[in-house]
Design a protein around this nucleic acid. Structure first.
Lengths: 258, 258
DNA sequence: CGTCCGATTGATGGGACTCAAGATTTGTGG
DNA sequence: CCACAAATCTTGAGTCCCATCAATCGGACG
């Protein structure tokens, strides 16, 4: 498995750190806070694909942040069925709620090889106490997660399969674009159809058929783990997607729905 | 509409305030913080049933807290379909994420007559800056919401209608019990089948039939807005419900699943 | 070259939706 | 206090979306 994180630029200094970037975008943490976090990010843990970053039910003293690669939060029901509750991209916090609730109720698994930063929870709390701006940023992250979860609930509850898939693809592409990990209308989406199904509450078989439908209509094409949008307007329309709820910075190559 | 909040006790001092109670349970805010909040709670806004507490898309300078009554967060899709993303009971914060994201993406509507406290966001931020414990409590609330949302996603994605309904009923009863708003195995659940459907991604008709099935199996009975559990163990088993994720205090009259 | 994993295809069945009508409850005004 | 209106609940018949089961195909890899 040769996954290569797609960095926008290859600076000689710290390469683009999405987490620190977001942090600074939503608040003004103290220099010492940033420095501490940056130091931690400089020696990330390498996690290989398909292994767990956080294991539900197992207490953990760390908060985890994805620096590169793809991961997902999963919840396993008593009968073994799995639900993916979120996809985590570079800069996303894995288990913010577990700062308060230990052991975690959800697992986090790497979908590709990942670089993960681990912050001791005790230090994090300390940081938040000392630095109100940082605390506020954490609140922002939590609120952001809540919004995205709410959107997913609406999708699962109200939308038929095709719309649901289209919406998820729109969301992923938009988030990738904001990170500079998409080239125009094409990007890597290293998800199997089974994983898409687990996130959307659909079976692999049905995901496959719907995806073929979208392809037949010249909306999207998947070739391996490369996803190409042929008709961005169309995909948005099918998924009733409006990127505003993601609260991302700058251009996301999309117009608000009139 | 003669809805009467069911208070556990009729103290002469402040009557039981679930919000303040929870706040103190999860952290130790400064006395002045508590006093400020208590003062606000003492003159709540009265909101009549079916009216909006928060209107999606309309900026609001206040954070809202349900002091008594039932409310729900809803999200309306472009085509008009509605999804209820959460039911809000006494002490629950309506729109915590909108402290960061204005205007709100979700509406909050009163399902019964409600008493609602409104805290100016600016004051709230101020409070959180001054009082790290209070800030931490807010984090707790946000994390808690996230956990509950995650559980609902798993329900919507993986469970068939009967399990989904059973799970939601278990959740509601457990939360009511923790508030002292349930008498033994019976409590008021002022929800229409349509509203249950909107929360569960099911049609009214189907909710009705499943509910009848649960009744035929002597699991639960609904009489008007009164819900009575005939077989608590059975209901939990059907819904694969384990109350731990709700992180409620004390007795919830339930055993962890072995 | 055989194995494994993921994508694909087909046939079949069922859970949930839709449509439509009636019953029951709740609310309202005279 | 009754009559009427409006919700809400209930029931039935028909349909469809999506799940299930089962097999095949293709590529990656040791």
């Amino acid at each position: 498995m040769s996954w290569q994180p797609a960095f926008t630029q290859g600076h000689t200094r710290d390469r683009t750190n999405q987490f620190i970037g977001q942090l600074r975008r939503v608040s003004c943490p103290l220099p010492e806070t940033l420095e501490f976090l940056q130091r931690l990010c400089r020696e990330p843990r390498r996690v290989c694909a398909k292994s767990d970053i956080v294991l539900s039910g197992t207490p953990s003293a760390y908060l985890h942040i994805v620096l590169s690669g793809w991961a997902c939060r999963t919840r396993t029901l008593a009968d073994g069925r799995r639900q993916i509750t979120a996809f985590l991209l570079s800069g996303d916090i894995c288990d913010l709620d577990n700062v308060f609730f230990d052991p975690p109720g959800e697992s986090v698994s790497a979908l590709t090889e990942c670089e993960v930063a681990a912050i001791p929870k005790a230090r994090l709390r300390d940081l938040a106490r000392r630095d109100a701006d940082f605390a506020e940023a954490l609140g922002w992250f939590a609120a952001h997660d809540k919004v995205v979860l709410g959107a997913r609930i609406a999708s699962l509850g109200q939308r038929p399969a095709q719309e649901r898939i289209a919406h998820l693809l729109c969301e992923l592409i938009t988030r990738l674009r904001a990170r500079g990990e998409a080239n125009g209308d094409s990007c890597r989406v290293p998800l199997t159809q089974e994983q898409l199904g687990e996130a959307l509450g659909l079976t692999t078989v049905h995901v496959n058929r719907v995806l073929q439908g979208l392809r037949a209509d010249n909306v999207v094409v998947r070739d391996g783990d490369r996803l190409t949008i042929l008709d961005w307007e169309g995909l948005q329309a099918i998924g009733c997607f409006s990127p505003t709820y993601l609260h991302l910075p700058g251009r996301t190559h999309s117009q608000p729905i009139a």
